[in-house]
């Protein structure tokens, strides 16, 4: 226990922000920035992908469906390595680990999120789209004012869970030297050499605290969404029949 305390006391700043300002921003700060940026950029892309997958045009639907299946069928680590080697070739110059990881996360999370968005849209009653159509809304109006506001609201809890997965996925950035939390922990371990269990225990606990807090937030959000969906008050209270009435 004392060892844990010592490690934390000596290295808390490294765990928090990495070598910043003497090196790139790292630690939890980098992990969170990577996750937030990843999900924030993946979100609009995922809506576009979902709409493409629901499109009546085959030319749009098929390639996107193929992409989503492909990405979902390949381990994230493979995609990270591919991007790592492919991006510099395509762009013709060196790309930082952080940027590489961000691109990969956006693609990967967008594909997963697009399935959530698609499910959210398909779960809405067909009558919503029909009502919008009968009022004269075109495709864009239907999506923007009727379908997406409902579908995305209902999906908030799933999106938060996806965000939590994203935080965990950032650990894989370690393999391409992205200076995030796992990287910082490994630096500490390389310095100390003799206390790998303690160091990685601290790492695990840190991830757990962040993710557990967010999981709780997701549960709270889910309850709120459910209540909102059902309406704040029941339309008509139907008293349950008592045993006597049933008998």
């Amino acid at each position: 226990m004392a060892a844990l305390y010592d490690i934390l006391r000596d290295n808390w700043l490294l765990l928090l922000i990495g070598q910043y300002p003497y090196g790139p921003l790292g630690g939890i700060a980098a992990t969170l920035i990577l996750s937030v940026l990843g999900i924030a950029l993946a979100f609009p892309l995922s809506v576009a992908l979902a709409l493409a997958r629901l499109s009546p045009w085959i030319a749009l639907r098929w390639p996107v469906t193929a992409l989503v299946y492909a990405v979902r069928g390949i381990p994230l680590l493979m995609i990270i390595l591919w991007t790592y080697f492919l991006l510099p070739i395509l762009l013709g110059h060196v790309v930082s680990g952080f940027a590489t990881m961000l691109c990969t996360l956006v693609l990967y999370e967008a594909c997963y999120l697009s399935e959530v968005v698609r499910a959210g849209i398909e779960a809405l009653p067909k009558g919503q789209g029909e009502a919008a159509r009968s009022l004269g809304h075109g495709y864009v109006g239907r999506m923007r004012f009727v379908i997406l506001p409902q579908a995305l609201f209902n999906m908030l809890p799933s999106m938060l869970s996806q965000f939590i997965s994203t935080i965990q996925d950032t650990t894989l950035g370690y393999v391409i030297n992205v200076q995030e939390l796992t990287f910082a922990a490994n630096q500490i371990n390389n310095q100390l050499l003799t206390q790998p269990f303690q160091v990685f225990f601290i790492l695990a606990i840190t991830y757990f605290i962040v993710c557990f807090a967010l999981t709780q937030a997701a549960r709270w959000l889910e309850r709120r969404v459910t209540t909102r969906r059902l309406g704040t008050t029941a339309p008509t209270a139907i008293p349950l029949p008592t045993g006597e009435e049933l008998a």
């Binding site: 029909e130 009502a131 159509r133 004269g136 409902q150 969906r229």
Partner: peptide, 15 residues
């Protein structure tokens, strides 16, 4: 369509 009012069995208000 916007000039033809339609009322559904299941109301279909926007919740």
């Amino acid at each position: 369509r916007s000039r033809i009012g339609f009322v559904f069995q299941s109301f279909n208000l926007f919740p």
